[in-house]
C-alpha cells in the first residue's frame, strides 16, 4: 500500500481506536498493522522506536507514533500519525465527558473493563515475546534485560534513568570489546 499522509493517518486512526487499556498495547497493534499487514517498517525498527519512545519525555504511544510517522513520510508523516493516533482518544472523551460518572458506575461497563484488562495482559505478553526475539540475542543483552527488569519491578528508579543507563552500558560494552580486540 502506498505511503500517503492519508493512508498513514487512516492506519494510525485505526490503531488509536483499538488502543484500549491506556496505551500499553501500542506495540502489538503497530506490529500487526505496520509490520505484518502493510509491511511499511520492520519489526526491528519498530522495537527501536518503542524503546526510544519510552526513554524520551511524554506519552510513550505518542512518541512511538511520531518516530514511526517520521520514518514513513518525514514531518508530514509524523503529523499524520500523531493526529490519527490522538483523534479517537480526543473524540471519545469529548463525547463522554458529560456522562463520565454514570459510565464508571455502570456495572456492565465494569465487566467489559475487567475483561479487556485481561486481553491487554495477553497482548502485552505477545509483545514482550516478539520484542525479546529482536533484542535479547546474546549474554550481554540478557544481562541488560535482567537488570532492567529487576530495577523496573523495584520501582524506585525513574524508568528514563534505567533506559539511559542501559544505553550507556551498551556503549561501554562496545568499548570493552574494542579494547579486547585491540590486544589480540
Amino acid at each position: 500500500m502506498e505511503k500517503s499522509w492519508y493512508s498513514i493517518f487512516k492506519t494510525f486512526f485505526k490503531v488509536g481506536t483499538l488502543l484500549l487499556g491506556g496505551g500499553y498495547v501500542i506495540l502489538p497493534l503497530l506490529t500487526s498493522e505496520l509490520v505484518e499487514k502493510k509491511k511499511w517498517i520492520t519489526s526491528e525498527e519498530l522495537c527501536e522506536y518503542y524503546a526510544l519512545g519510552a526513554s524520551l519525555p511524554g506519552i510513550i504511544a505518542v512518541n512511538t507514533a511520531i518516530f514511526t510517522g517520521r520514518k514513513l513520510l518525514g514531518t508530514v508523516g509524523a503529523f499524520a500519525a500523531t493526529v490519527g493516533m490522538v483523534l479517537p482518544a480526543f473524540l471519545a472523551i469529548v463525547l463522554l465527558a458529560a456522562i463520565l460518572s454514570e459510565i464508571i458506575a455502570n456495572s456492565y461497563i465494569q465487566h467489559i473493563f475487567w475483561g479487556v484488562g485481561i486481553g491487554v495482559i495477553v497482548l502485552l505478553f505477545l509483545a514482550v515475546k516478539e520484542m525479546w526475539k529482536k533484542s535479547v540475542t546474546d549474554k550481554f543483552s540478557m544481562l541488560v534485560y535482567g537488570v532492567c527488569l529487576l530495577l523496573a519491578l523495584w520501582g524506585k528508579i525513574p524508568l528514563a534513568v534505567i533506559i539511559i543507563g542501559a544505553l550507556f552500558a551498551g556503549v561501554f560494552w562496545q568499548k570493552i570489546k574494542d579494547r579486547r580486540g585491540g590486544i589480540k
Binding site: 524503546a51 534485560y145 537488570v147 532492567c148 527488569l149 543507563g165 550507556f168 552500558a169 551498551g170 562496545q174
Partner: peptide, 22 residues
C-alpha cells in the same frame, strides 16, 4: 549501534515489568 541495541533490551524489560505488575 551498541547503545541502541542495549536500549531495545531495556525497552523489552520495561514492557515485561508493566505486564507483571498488571
Amino acid at each position: 549501534k551498541a547503545g541502541i541495541s542495549a536500549l531495545k533490551s531495556a525497552g523489552c524489560a520495561l514492557l515485561s515489568a508493566v505486564g507483571i505488575k498488571l
